[in-house]
Simulated scan of single mutants.
Amino acid sequence: MNPGKYNFICFYLFLILFFFSCQKKENTYIETINVNDARLSKAKPGDWRYSRDEEFQTFGDFQRLKKIKPEPGRNIIYLQPIGEFDELQKKEIELTQEYLNKYFQLETKVLPVLPDNIVPKTARRIFREGQEQILAGYVLDNVLIKRKPKDAVVVMGITEKDLFPKPEWNYVFGQASYEEGVGVTSIYRFSGGHVSDANFNESLERLIKISSHEIGHMFGISHCLNANCVMNGTNSLSETDYHFARACSLCQQKLNSSLHYDHKKRLLDLKDFFEKQHLNSEYLLAEKDFNLFK
């Protein structure tokens, strides 16, 4: 080959490679919404993070973890109400079903209500404020695991009575057995013991946060130390209210790697839910993420 022609070809190939190497790599959805993550504030006495030395779970840590994943024939989220619910409480459960369907992009169903007496007196106590409490571990081990439907990927129990995890603890918002894929939460604390028209939205927002948080754990996501996120640990209602219902970009990356949903459809579904329920702060967060698609 003519040396001049050979040099020309080499120079031409060099220009092509240089051109493509200079092209800006298009960011993924997760890389794009990272700008909308809100930094965690410094933990104060009484906060979950203040007295706990939890390890940061990277995406690689999550990938290596043995965890529950939906699979054909075992891919439905079930809610199991336990107790006697009034009409507003029933409405909260129905809306939680709708929300979890949109949040996880998995079919979500509500099982028939189980009566209070399914929990024996030995697994109950009267707390110092006068309300009856149910032992959360009993609900997990003796009710939910034994009744878990064959097509369930996870089951989330919802009680109208307060919950406690062990005798020395005052109460617990939620508890789960991650290996078995069952969890339980209570409406009681989210509404000050009584759901009303005035506190309905506040109570609902707390319920959807704790429910999606516990189910997120069942899918292998640890407490989030990355940003303000629904997967942050919480010790109090004020801490729960401070945390977003939005999962941060890292926790969304973990979730999507197991559930494989369409990000855009999920955001549209969540925006629709927040708008209809007048959960304005969460609507604006979903809108900010969605606008990055444009």
Rank of each mutant, 00 (worst) to 15 (best):
G183S: 15
D289W: 08
D61L: 14
H260G: 07
E179W: 10
R246T: 00
L17K: 08
L267I: 00
P165E: 04
G220I: 05
F164M: 03
F18L: 09
R125N: 01
E160I: 05
V110C: 02
G193Y: 09
L267M: 03
F18T: 11
K25R: 14
I77C: 05
F164P: 02
K271Y: 00
I118F: 11
V139C: 14
C22T: 03
K90A: 06
C248M: 01
P165R: 09
E55C: 00
L285Y: 12
K254I: 07
V230G: 05
S186E: 13
T58F: 13
Q80Y: 11
R124C: 12
E179G: 04
N232V: 06
A136H: 02
A123D: 15
F173N: 06
L135Q: 08
T240F: 09
Y283D: 02
Y178W: 05
R39Q: 10
E31Y: 11
D151Q: 09
F14G: 14
L250A: 14
N199Y: 01
Q253S: 04
Y12P: 00
L268M: 07
F85Q: 10
E132V: 03
F11S: 14
Q63C: 02
L144M: 09
G216K: 03
D289H: 02
N280M: 10
H223E: 11
I93N: 04
Y188V: 03
K166S: 13
Y78E: 10
N291Q: 15
S212V: 04
I9D: 00
N34A: 10
Q175D: 10
H278T: 01
P120S: 12
D241V: 14
I77P: 02
R128D: 08
F62T: 07
N101S: 12
R49S: 11
I93G: 01
I9K: 02
P3K: 09
Q97F: 03
F59T: 08
G216S: 13
L95I: 09
G192V: 09
V119C: 00
E132F: 00
L40N: 03
C10V: 15
F8N: 13
S186K: 07
G60R: 12
E84G: 03
P81G: 02
A152G: 07
H213L: 13
A136Q: 04
L144V: 06
W169R: 05
A247E: 08
Q97R: 15
